[in-house]
Design a protein around this nucleic acid. Structure first.
Lengths: 199, 199
DNA sequence: TATCCAGAGTTCTCCTAATGTTCTATACTC
DNA sequence: GAGTATAGAACATTAGGAGAACTCTGGATA
């Protein structure tokens, strides 16, 4: 917990940083909270750093960063816990923020919108977005974007048959799976994420 | 984090670029921030590049680019088009980037992990993440996080009955819907997005 | 095409002022 | 007395400035 003086110092640092874009020096902090000793200001700043309100870049002039900003600027959401039918929300221990960048972004990734119901059996619906990672190989059983005869691209589950041929499985009982000679199928990418918006 | 002088330099570069359409030379930057050494100006420019505020085009004269939109671009993926069974990928006209921040983030939002199969009928599976927007009201038919008797939280479709009571519908034929007196149900939030990772 | 050159970028060293760090002594408040 | 604050001195580092010497870029010219 912060002492009143520490709180004043933190408020001053916030305001200064917001107005000027860089952090105040110790002397400026001292003046800002109405004291004359930079040694004292230094102690307050150290205390704030220990309390986790700010982060100090060691030795650097004006090397103060607000912790709040650093967190908020990331692509993250609070992760409250798990929810089930008939149960209160229960906290997931040890993880309280969901880093969406980590979840979604990456080199060689792109998004596609799904059309049709061919993957409805695994919860990928018409209109959903899927994020694909560009690759030309995939493990057996992965969901892939496959190009058939260099013409038709499709999202299907990949299975390699003992015969060497490739089976592309639609996760929908109404749609039959197809079997192709290996050379007719080229893998373009692998499904890494699916998302859907409700609104 | 920028130092005061770096901040001045960046401001000058921005203004120059905006007015003239091309970047200032090191000597111009030096003059612009009130110093006489282009060596020093060079140091500031290097620091700005390292901090990610600008980008330098290697060796080129006046080769400075602003990276103002760096953040926005970090939160987006190329949106290639739509994919369907038996069709080539087709471009979605007029939209070539997916802004994930827009899709997912917002004030008062948080993430929950889904447990159980109660919403499997609309493609929300066990283990999926859902993003919830904190609200205490919801439209009829929305998917909500509802708190029953201040004890059990659950993710269900909301329906208001003519009788004034509230029906919470599980999207799974195996799980019966429940009907409660309105006062027993408190809405905590509304489902805005669902996502799932494959890997 | 080959050559030249002014403008621009790069690297360096030396210097100074601004700032951070540490310490001791003292005062205030509960 | 314990905890917190303050002042101020002494010292250590960092950021910033000047300027020289060098290389590179992009045209202009032969």
């Amino acid at each position: 917990m912060l002492t009143p003086t520490q709180d004043r110092a933190l408020t001053f640092i916030r305001r200064y940083l917001k107005r000027r874009g860089y952090a105040p020096s110790l002397i400026e902090i001292a003046e800002g909270i109405g004291i004359s000793s930079k040694g004292t200001a230094h102690r307050h700043v150290q205390a704030l750093a220990e309390a986790g309100a700010i982060r100090l870049i060691n030795g650097r002039k004006r090397g103060i960063e607000l912790v709040e900003t650093a967190q908020a600027s990331k692509l993250s959401l609070p992760l409250l816990g798990a929810i089930a039918a008939g149960q209160p929300i229960e906290a997931i221990p040890g993880q309280d923020r969901l880093d969406l960048a980590d979840y979604l972004l990456g080199d060689n990734r792109y998004a596609l919108q799904v059309k049709g119901d061919s993957m409805i059996g695994i919860g990928i619906l018409d209109g959903d977005l899927v994020i694909i990672e560009r690759r030309d190989t995939a493990e057996d059983n992965a969901i892939v974007v496959a190009l058939i005869d260099d013409q038709e691209a499709t999202l299907k589950r990949l299975r390699r048959l003992k015969s060497g041929r490739i089976k592309l499985i639609a996760e929908n009982p109404d749609i039959p799976s197809m079997i192709y000679a290996a050379k007719r199928v080229r893998i373009q990418g692998v499904l890494v994420c699916q998302l859907r918006r409700y609104q």
